[in-house]
Nucleic acid binder design. Structure first.
Lengths: 138, 138
DNA sequence: ACTTAATAGTTGTATAGCAAACTAAACCGG
DNA sequence: CCGGTTTAGTTTGCTATACAACTATTAAGT
């Protein structure tokens, strides 16, 4: 009924992908949102919380909550910025460092599976389209 | 950092679109999920709850909760099926019927705006890609 | 008929997300 | 250096969504 609706199709696809990625990160006890945020932090240790939020295009309040979760799992710690007392630097813990390769490789596996399922060109065209629309609207 | 990631781009786009549609339906006191479900029910009055869920590709429990919301707003009512006592037929109320045109036209407006923003071909290509990927994966 | 399956819907629990209101720190004009 | 403004992060309250466990009803097999 909503075949031509961008919203409907996009949210529906998002739910499907959410399931895939939830399964992929389950072995680590991480949700997709947690895992992606951790990947950002592992990539750029010491990023400010606001930078993490911007990188992921989520609101500050959502970042607060997701980081609370990662902190409870002892995967990150928050350090008060020295120059600016409002800012928080986000650092991965030693435990997080040991997970890094596994998480990245689990991510790679999912992508590989999706590419196989869709064929590489279809996958890449879809990503390109979605990314470009997203960029235009944001 | 996740430019090539289908999950990341899709969920990000979904959030952007969610904002658009939230604003569009706000005048009616409806959330996008509620409004879309109501549109399904107005299109096929008397659908079974399970059919509504399937049409929208959401789980039964999510359908239960969204319908709870619509019922509280007195926009739908549930009627026990006569042939099968487990089933519930979902019927729009008189009040819902009066909203029908307005909701459909608000939807049309958003789509029109997005098409203008992206250009019609880009919009349509994006919808087609997303819909086709979704269909393949689900 | 009786027991066992399957099916429709609900409820409990959990995460993700947003907006708006809030706190605390820093900045800026005079 | 004081008062107003901006900025970083948190809290609160809400919706959407899923999964798993539950109830109630129907269907099926013997």
């Amino acid at each position: 009924m909503f075949d031509q609706c961008l919203y409907f199709n996009t949210t529906a696809l998002a739910r499907v992908l959410e399931r895939e990625w939830t399964a992929a990160f389950k072995p680590f006890g991480l949700t997709p949102a947690q895992a992606f945020m951790l990947r950002v932090i592992l990539e750029k240790p010491g990023s400010l919380q606001s930078e993490v939020a911007r990188e992921m295009t989520i609101t500050r309040s959502t970042a607060t909550r997701t980081l609370d979760g990662l902190q409870k799992l002892k995967l990150i710690e928050r350090r008060t910025g020295e120059r600016d007392g409002r800012e928080l630097e986000i650092h991965p813990t030693a435990r997080a460092l040991t997970l890094r390769e596994q998480i990245n490789s689990a991510s790679g596996e999912v992508t590989k599976r999706l590419k196989k399922s869709l064929s590489v060109p279809r996958f890449e065209e879809a990503v390109a389209k979605v990314a470009s629309v997203r960029k235009s609207l944001e």
